[in-house]
Design a protein around this nucleic acid. Structure first.
Lengths: 156, 156
DNA sequence: TTTACTGCAAATATTTTGCAATATC
DNA sequence: GATATTGCAAAATATTTGCAGTAAA
């Protein structure tokens, strides 16, 4: 599916959700969704807020927080807590089949696809628990940082 | 291994780490480690602080934060961010082979063991990334909350 | 016209930091 | 005796909340 169709599709999804919950279709909500789907990496609320400002669209932080919560509720984005205090988010459309490698030294996050592992996790059932999603976080040292380690360089 | 031996073992581990890093063996550090290993569930810093107070051992919040960071560094405890802003921690001794089911309605966390899945994750290698650990978080509705859902009960 | 939503600012929650006093090595 | 660590309080960071004004239905 090409870019524009994805945007149309997620906007329609949001629209349907708002209708079903009797919530309002405000321009802010669609503008934020659009901005998110134009980005290619995960983001935090503050970054999203600043990108909106920079792009000329004025919204308040409170609205960004509210909208991001809403988009999580209707499964258009996924929330992550990679180990810092700040929540990170990413698009949920066709991106549910990857994991995150998190460098505990530089906090960089790398995405990894693995269909086999993904299928296995998806097929796993649990007693008395209705699974809606999962996150696999793999911690360690990235290329750069483990190289630094080997050279005994001091890093912060 | 019985309770006392575990405590001895983890204290020795901490002691060795402090020596190797030329850090000081303060009573606070060992008291906090002991308290943690006497508990049976994951905890947040504030809860740990209050349990220390209640048990009659006076430490400052700052020291609890510092010590918890230290214990993460030397692999005696593991840090989690279950989706809220508050970090959670748990013992790392012989407890690295389970996952967490997180109820997105009541925020309750259930532990699940699965040796097969664990072994598979452990054996998985990644290019240019040196794995030190991982966390698998499975989100959904627990027994109680999906029952509520079926009954159409309003819940917060 | 009703009331959900927005923006702003203040409040809250969690964690970090600066600094003087203390205790380990 | 040198300095790492502690406790306390203030600061920093991230998020939530209250409320008056605005706009969607």
């Amino acid at each position: 599916m090409e870019e524009n169709n994805i945007l149309e599709s997620v906007s329609a999804q949001l629209s349907a959700y708002l209708t079903s919950k009797k919530l309002r279709k405000t321009p802010e909500r669609f503008a934020i969704l659009e901005q998110i789907y134009n980005m290619n990496r995960h983001f935090d609320v503050d970054t999203l807020y600043e990108i909106m400002q920079a792009s000329g669209y004025r919204v308040s932080r409170a609205t960004v927080y509210n909208t991001v919560d809403l988009l999580v509720e209707c499964n258009l984005i996924v929330k992550h807590q990679f180990g810092t205090n700040m929540a990170h988010y990413e698009k949920a459309f066709n991106t549910d089949n990857h994991f995150h490698l998190i460098c505990t030294n530089c906090n960089n996050v790398i995405e990894v696809k693995d269909e086999d592992l993904n299928n296995q996790l998806k097929s796993r059932k649990f007693k008395n628990f209705e699974v809606t999603g999962y996150n696999l976080y793999i911690y360690g040292l990235c290329n750069k940082c483990s190289a630094k380690d080997r050279n005994n360089t001091i890093h912060n």
